[in-house]
Amino acid sequence: MTDDAYLFLVDDPAETLGVPPAEVGPPACMETPAVRAWLDAQGVSALSPRLRLVSPEETEAIEEGAERLPVPLGEEELSRLRHRTAPQALAAVEGELLAYRDCAHGRDELLARALAAGVAPHRIAELTGEDLRAVRAAATR
Rank of each mutant, 00 (worst) to 15 (best):
A5G: 01
I62D: 02
D40H: 11
L53S: 04
L111F: 09
A104P: 00
D4I: 00
S45L: 11
L69R: 08
T59K: 05
T85Q: 09
E76G: 01
E130H: 09
G106L: 12
D108F: 02
P70M: 05
L115A: 06
A5E: 01
V44C: 07
L73P: 03
A137Y: 07
T85F: 03
M1A: 14
H122I: 10
V44K: 13
M1C: 05
T85C: 09
R36H: 06
E109N: 03
A138L: 11
G25Q: 10
V24Y: 00
E67Q: 14
A138C: 03
A89I: 02
E15W: 07
P20L: 04
L7S: 04
A61F: 14
G129Q: 11
D11Q: 13
L17V: 05
A117P: 00
S45H: 11
E67Y: 07
D108T: 12
A114L: 15
A92Q: 11
V44G: 01
A22R: 15
E64S: 10
R101N: 01
T140D: 13
P21E: 07
T32H: 04
A66W: 05
R133M: 06
V24R: 07
R68L: 07
R133V: 11
D12H: 06
T59I: 13
R80H: 08
R107V: 03
A120P: 02
P13N: 10
P56V: 10
T85E: 01
E57G: 02
V24Q: 05
Q88H: 05
R136G: 00
G118R: 05
F8W: 03
D4T: 05
V44R: 15
V24C: 04
L97T: 00
D108Y: 02
T140L: 15
A41Q: 14
E94S: 06
E60W: 15
W38L: 07
R36E: 13
P33C: 00
A46L: 09
L98Y: 06
V71L: 07
A22I: 09
A92R: 15
D3Y: 06
E57K: 03
P56A: 14
A134T: 14
W38N: 02
R82I: 03
E58K: 15
A112N: 06
D12I: 10
R68K: 15
T32E: 13
A28H: 04
Q88P: 00
L47C: 00
T85H: 01
A46S: 15
E77P: 00
H122C: 02
E23Y: 08
